[in-house]
Structure formats: structure tokens, C-alpha cells
Computed example of a mutant assay.
Amino acid sequence: MNRFFKRKWLLHCYFWIGYSFYFFVVNALGNSRLNLGASFITVFYCAIIFYAVYLILKYVYDRGHILGTLVLMIGFYLLSGIFLYYELYGRFGLEIINNRYVITKHAFSWGKYIQTFLVMHSNYTVMAVGYYYYKSKLRESNDKLEAVKARLNAESSMKSFQYATLSAQVHPHMMANIFSHLKNKVDPYDAELGRQLSKLYRLMKFYMEAHHVDGATHILLADEVRALEQYLSIQEKVEPNPFYINLSCSGNLLRFSTAPTLLQTLAGNLFKHADLWDKNHPAKIDILVGHAGYRIKVKNKKRSGPQMMPSHDVGLRNVRIRMEYLFGTDFSMEENQDHEHYELTLCVQRYN
């Protein structure tokens, strides 16, 4: 960055030095008394006019401060006019009027003074405005190019993620054929196990669709509850001991949506950390749907003794991130716990 900055201003210096020689050669044709030093002084002051106007446009006008731009421009031109008067008619006696550069004790003339002021300032003001417009268009083109590159990179990344996701999944049709074959083999001997295989396939298909790159980010709360019920039904057959989780729902579950696999994540945390085998203190998952939103509250008794599976808070952190992505500030999540009990409350409330 510093190298680019130094190179940029070095090029500007080369330009003004070259322009000073050009200025001297062109004007010396009509004024043999003009020297190179006077040309450098004149061009240096013209460069000050150029950069002053350009910087005001870049750092004030660019930010939409039109009044500030006018005030600074007028202030600069007033100061420059005073300085120009002092140089032309002060004790140095350097005058630049009608190609006459070194004339001393020249009588003051408003007409000639205004002419000199306008010639010097208008030319380099126009140059500064043109340079500002060129740099603005160049910056706008670069921004568009960067935006296109960012979009292409995002699309490339999305395709890579999509490929990885699809590669990690088994095709649902193949899974359906496998589970159907197993169910037909098992049904004559154990109809209940056949039904469990069907539930397991539906749950697996639900997970696969929920984690598909192009899959829906929202699903109905009713569908999520139905998937949770299937999950708990399968767990009843998997767990060696009976567990106690009370699921209660009130309100119209068809009115609102949620993130796929949200409830399964919460139930999975119960199986990892909660005491689910105390019949007198069952874990609870309460879903209350109201007029403007819904609330999900999970309560459980903590498992005593050392934890079999350590908690990394990854599941709950992912829940928070996903729900905030979907609902923004309409979503809130709160945890409360003591030595024996844990409570988690998720709320989606539309305020508008």
C-alpha cells in the first residue's frame, strides 16, 4: 500500500515537472523575458489550485456535503485571490497578465486582476473537476469489478459446498429401495420392527432434505414436531431403558415456520445431558403458539454424576446462529439453570 502511494505521487511529481518545462517553452515563445524559475513558481501555484479543488471534491463532495463543498471552495478562492493580489501588486511585483511576466510597479487594475484570477483558477479548476470525474468513474468500475469477482467466488464456493454435500449423501431412492426390501423381509416375522424401519427411513429422508444446499431454510412448525415425534418413537426402541420426555403443543402449528431439525437438536441434547429415567421428573418440551409468534421451552433434570458425553455447546450455538439468520431480532434465546435443573427458552415474536 505504501509503495503504491509513493509510486502514485511520484508520477504526479514527474507530470508537474514535465508540465513546467512545457509551460516555459510555450509561453517563452511570446515572452522572451520569461525565465524557467518563474515558470516553476507559476506551475507550482497552479498545482496547488488543482489539488485543493480535487481534494475538496474527493473528501467533502463525495460524502454528499454540498454546502460544505461550496463553503470550502469559496473560502479557498478568497484566500487564493488575496495571495494572488499580494504576489501581483505587492513588493515582489511578479505579474502575470497578457503574457507579461516580470513587470514591476504596475498600476493596479481591477479588469486585469480579475482576468488573471479567472485564467489561473478556471483552467486548473476544470482540470481538477475532470480528474475527479475520471477517478470517480475508475473507482466505480473497480468496485463493480470487485463485486463481480466476489459474486463469482461466492458461486464457486457454493458449488463446492453443494458438491461436498451431495457427495456426502446417499440417494433417497436407493435408500427407499433398501428400507423397502428390509421391511418386506422383516414384516412376516416382526411387524413392529417393519414399522420402525419405515419411520427410520422417513426420518433419514427428512434429515437429508433439511441439510441439502438447495433445500428449504424454513419448514412448518407442524412438520418439525412430526419429525420429532418420529425421532422419539425410534429412540424408544433404541434406548435400553425407558425414558420420559413429555412433548406438549398448543396453538396452531401451521401458522409459523422454524429451522429444520431444530427440535431434534434440542431432544438430542436431552439424551446427552438430562436425567430422562426419573419417571417423577420427566423432561419437558413445551411448544406454545400465540398470535404473533411461538415459544419453545425445554426443562429437564440434570444427570447426576460425571457426564458420559462432554458438552461443547456446539448444538445450541448452531441453533442460535440458524434461528438468528432466519428471524433476526425477532428471535431470542435464554438459558437458566441451577445445580439440579436446566431450562432453555426459544422465542420467535413478530413485533411489526
Rank of each mutant, 00 (worst) to 15 (best):
C46A: 15
C46S: 15
C46P: 13
C46E: 12
A47N: 00
A47T: 01
A47R: 00
A47V: 01
A47C: 06
A47H: 01
I48T: 11
I48C: 13
I48H: 03
I49K: 02
I49T: 11
I49W: 00
I49D: 04
I49G: 07
I49R: 01
F50G: 04
Y51N: 10
Y51K: 09
Y51E: 10
A52D: 04
A52M: 11
A52I: 08
V53R: 06
V53W: 03
V53I: 13
V53A: 11
V53G: 07
Y54K: 12
Y54P: 08
Y54R: 12
L55S: 05
L55R: 07
I56G: 13
I56Q: 12
I56V: 15
L57R: 10
L57A: 15
L57P: 14
L57E: 07
L57G: 14
K58M: 06
K58N: 03
K58T: 06
K58Q: 03
K58V: 04
K58C: 04
Y59W: 09
Y59T: 11
Y59C: 10
V60N: 13
V60I: 15
Y61S: 11
Y61P: 10
Y61H: 15
D62A: 11
D62W: 02
D62P: 03
R63G: 06
R63F: 04
R63A: 06
G64W: 05
G64D: 05
G64Q: 05
G64P: 09
H65M: 04
H65A: 05
H65T: 03
H65G: 03
I66L: 01
I66T: 01
I66K: 00
L67R: 08
L67A: 06
G68M: 07
G68E: 06
T69G: 12
T69V: 12
L70K: 04
L70Q: 02
L70I: 07
V71H: 01
V71Y: 00
V71W: 00
L72Q: 12
L72M: 13
L72P: 07
L72W: 12
M73I: 03
I74Y: 03
I74S: 05
I74T: 07
I74E: 00
I74H: 02
G75T: 02
G75C: 04
F76P: 11
F76N: 12
Y77R: 10
Y77Q: 12
L78W: 01
L78V: 09
L79W: 06
L79T: 12
L79M: 14
L79R: 08
L79H: 08
L79G: 14
S80D: 15
S80V: 14
S80Q: 15
S80H: 14
G81V: 08
G81N: 09
G81M: 14
I82E: 03
I82H: 02
F83R: 09
F83N: 11
F83Y: 10
F83D: 03
L84D: 13
Y85L: 07
Y85P: 01
Y85S: 06
Y85K: 10
Y86G: 14
Y86C: 11
Y86D: 08
E87D: 02
E87M: 05
E87W: 01
L88S: 14
L88F: 13
L88T: 12
L88Y: 07
L88E: 12
